[in-house]
Simulated scan of single mutants.
Amino acid sequence: MERIATTPGLYPLPDDAKDALSDLKGHQKHDLVSGDEGPEIEGVYDDVRERLVAVQRDAGLDRVVEGQARWDDMLAHPLTVHENVETGGIVRYYDNNNFYRDPVVEGDLTFSGDLAADLEAAADLTDDLQAVVPGPYSLADLATDDHYGDDAEFLAAVAEFLADEVAAFPDVETVFLLEPSLVTNPPGDGEDERASEAVDAVAAAVDDADVVAHTYWGALDEKVHAHLLDADVDAVGYDLVTDHEANVHNVAEYGTKDSVALGVVDGQNTLVESPDTVRERVDWFRDAVPDAVDFETAYLTANTGLFYLPVNRFEEKLAALGAATAADEAEEVTA
């Protein structure tokens, strides 16, 4: 089983960049308007992107993300910068003491190209690029629909929008579709199948890269898990930090894809895991599932985005992930 160190992105902004952006935009970070920045603001984000890529390279990560420094509204970002979306009031982001602006969809979700532009810039900095994209179910769940008028039609429209965005990406090694809402607000009967079809539609637009549907903040309901396995993704993510027993139960009882992503580092807690702890959690998972389950790849990752952490703790957690897979590689060489 190949072990690949990576993250789901959503990195914290360095303090000096926060201060510079606050001065340039005139208000606090969670109120900043993204999408049409002037050259000075773009320059700050370019500098941050270079720093975030360098941190990942220094940590020895096998996959490098763009960092999502511009995602002031976190997973809602692709909608909050869209021309046919009005950014509404501040709402709580899942169960955290963080907030985002409610994206209110008021017109057709046409192609934007915002995600691809950031990835194009990151592609000049690394050959091991991993894209980070909100999953269609989560993005629809975080938004308000004032245009399509039907939940199923809206989910399909969000999936089509994301598929068009993904199709414009430069060459990447991996695409992480982040789907926490499948856990925190699980779809009901009928909707669970549509959610899987939406993930499948986005994955189908990915050209020559592995697709990971990464879920977190708990474990999937059994039926939701079964439907997600029907989607044509290469791996499903399991949050071993929040609920390791229920996630192992799903895999042991119902199987999974040929590869998995394992949330083995806490993206919200400042306690830094050691490389040995990371490896032990992976080994525990491997021992807990049936011997007949043979994984091609395990993506070792934080369970959530790392936006919530102080910058120094964020960097230390990246280093732990990188060191964990480096130790595995060293063992293979000496075996």
Rank of each mutant, 00 (worst) to 15 (best):
T6Y: 09
G9N: 01
L10N: 11
Y11I: 02
D19C: 10
L21A: 07
L21W: 10
S22Q: 08
D23L: 15
L24D: 14
K25V: 08
H27R: 14
H27G: 14
H30M: 12
G35Q: 04
D36W: 09
I41S: 15
E42H: 14
E42Q: 11
V44T: 08
V44K: 03
R49A: 09
R49S: 04
A54I: 11
V55H: 12
Q56P: 01
G60S: 05
D62I: 00
V64L: 08
V65T: 11
E66P: 04
G67F: 00
M74V: 14
A76C: 10
E86L: 09
I90V: 13
V91N: 07
R92N: 01
D95E: 10
N98H: 12
F99N: 13
D102N: 13
T110Y: 07
F111E: 15
S112L: 04
S112G: 07
G113M: 03
A117H: 13
L119T: 11
A131V: 08
V133F: 02
V133T: 00
G135K: 03
S138P: 03
A140Q: 11
L142Q: 13
L155Q: 01
A156L: 15
A157L: 08
A157T: 04
A159L: 09
E160F: 05
P170V: 12
T174A: 09
F176P: 05
E179R: 01
P180F: 12
V183K: 06
T184Q: 10
N185P: 01
D189P: 07
D189I: 03
E193D: 06
S196V: 03
V199S: 12
A204F: 03
A205V: 01
D207C: 02
D208M: 04
D210I: 01
V211W: 09
L220N: 05
E222K: 08
V224N: 05
V224Q: 08
D230P: 04
D234M: 11
G237N: 03
G237E: 07
D239V: 08
L240R: 14
V241Q: 15
T256G: 03
K257F: 01
A261G: 09
L262F: 07
V264M: 12
D266C: 13
D266P: 07
G267S: 02
Q268D: 12
Q268L: 13
T270L: 14
P275F: 05
E280T: 10
V282E: 13
R286Y: 12
D294G: 01
D294K: 07
F295C: 02
F295L: 11
F295N: 05
T297W: 04
A298I: 14
Y299C: 02
T301W: 00
G305E: 03
G305T: 02
Y308S: 06
Y308V: 00
L309R: 02
E315S: 10
A319I: 04
L321D: 00
A326S: 09
E331W: 05
E332V: 06
